[in-house]
Computed example of a mutant assay.
Amino acid sequence: MTNIVITGCSTGIGLETALYLKERYISVYPTARDEKDVAHLKNLGFEHAMVLDVTKPEQIAAVISQVMELEGKIDVWFNNAGYGQPGAVEDLSTAMLRAQFETNLFGLHECTLQVLRVMKAQGYGKIIQHSSVLGLISLFGRGAYNASKYAIEGLSDTLRLELMDTGISVSLLNTGPITSNFRQNAMQKLQENVDIAHSRFKEKYEANIRGTGKKVPFNLEADAVASVVYEIIAAKKPKPRYYITKATYLLGNLKRILSTSLLDKILMRVG
C-alpha cells in the first residue's frame, strides 16, 4: 500500500487531504504541531497521527523514524505546513519575516532534506511542495508570505533539476483561494504583530479585517487540492507544477503575457 506523510493537518487542506486519501486506501501519516490536533486526528481514525512542528528538526527525525519502523519506506511526503503573515513590507519587522521563513521555507527545507535521505536510499519517492498562486505573482500587503512562496518555487525548481538522475520527483502546488482557516489565522497574525494604529495603511488593514468572512472569487473546497495530491500519488511521472483554482490559471497566465506595469495595476485592484 502506498503511504504518505502530510505536515500541517490541524485543519483545512492538510486535514481534508488526509481524509480524502484515507478513503482511497492510501496509508496516511498526518502530522500537526499541537497535541490537541493530533488527538483529534486519532479520533478521526488516524492511529499513527504524530506531533510535528516543522521548525524542530528532532521532531521531523522522530516522524520519519516512526514511519520507517512501521512501513520500511516513505513513498510520498507532502510539505503542507505554513501560515500567512500579512502586512505591508514597511510594517514588517525582520523578526516577523524571519518567523514566516522559519515555518514556510526553512521547515519545509529541513523536512525535504531529511526525507531525501530515505528516498535516495530506497531509490524512489515523491515530494510535494505546497506553494501558492502567490509564489507566481505578488499582492499588496502579503510581502512576507509572497517572499516565502517565491523562495519555495526557486528551491524546488532547483531541487528537481538536481534529482533528475534519481527516481525522486518534486511537484509544486500553486493553490489559489481554498476554503480553510488560513485567512482568519492570517488576520489574527496581522492584529498581533503589526502596529495597525500607526500605519499609513491603517484603513486598508481594517477593511481587510472586516472582510475576513467575505466570499472570495474562484474559491474552491479543500478537496480540490486533495484530488491533485491523489493524482500525483497515482502518476508514474508527476508533473513539476500543478495549478489549482481559476485564480492561479488567470494570474499565472497574465504574468506571462502582460508588462509588469500593466500587471501591477491589475494586482492592485485584486489586492
Rank of each mutant, 00 (worst) to 15 (best):
A88P: 08
V89A: 15
A88W: 15
K42M: 14
V76N: 05
E35T: 13
H109W: 15
E16H: 07
L113M: 10
A81R: 11
T31E: 01
L113E: 14
L97C: 15
R24P: 07
L52C: 12
F78D: 06
M68N: 11
T31C: 00
Q66V: 09
V63I: 12
K22Q: 08
K36Y: 11
T94I: 12
W77R: 00
D37H: 14
A39P: 13
L97Y: 09
A62W: 06
E47R: 14
Q114C: 08
L19M: 03
T55R: 10
G72H: 08
L92P: 02
E90H: 04
G82N: 00
K42D: 06
S65R: 11
M50Q: 07
L21I: 12
L52W: 03
V89W: 02
T17R: 06
V54K: 10
K56W: 13
V115S: 05
N43Y: 13
N79V: 04
F46E: 05
V76G: 09
D91L: 04
Q59K: 12
D34T: 14
K36L: 09
S65M: 14
F101N: 04
E110N: 11
L97W: 07
W77V: 02
T103W: 01
T112A: 00
P57S: 14
I74F: 08
I60K: 10
V63M: 04
Q59M: 10
T31H: 02
F46H: 05
G45E: 01
L113T: 09
K42N: 07
E69C: 14
E58I: 01
D75N: 09
D53Y: 03
E90A: 01
E90T: 06
V118G: 06
T94R: 13
K56F: 12
D91Q: 05
F101Q: 01
F78V: 00
F101K: 00
G82P: 00
F46I: 10
T17N: 10
A88K: 14
K22A: 03
V67T: 01
G107P: 07
T31G: 02
K36M: 12
E71F: 01
E23C: 01
E69R: 08
S65W: 08
G84D: 15
R24L: 07
R98S: 15
D37K: 07
T31S: 05
N80G: 02
V115D: 03
R24Q: 09
I60L: 13
P86L: 09
A88Q: 15
L70N: 12
H109D: 13
E90K: 05
R33F: 05
T103C: 02
K22I: 00
H48P: 08
Y25A: 15
E110D: 15
T94Y: 13
E35L: 12
A99T: 14
L41V: 01
Y83T: 03
H109P: 10
F101T: 04
H109C: 14
M68A: 10
M96C: 06
R24K: 13
V118K: 06
K42A: 03
V118D: 10
G87A: 03
R24G: 02
V118L: 07
F78H: 12
A61R: 03
S93L: 01
M68K: 08
P57K: 14
E110S: 11
G72I: 13
A95L: 11
A49E: 04
A88M: 07
N104R: 04
I64P: 07
E16D: 14
L116H: 11
F106E: 09
H40D: 15
H48R: 15
T31I: 07
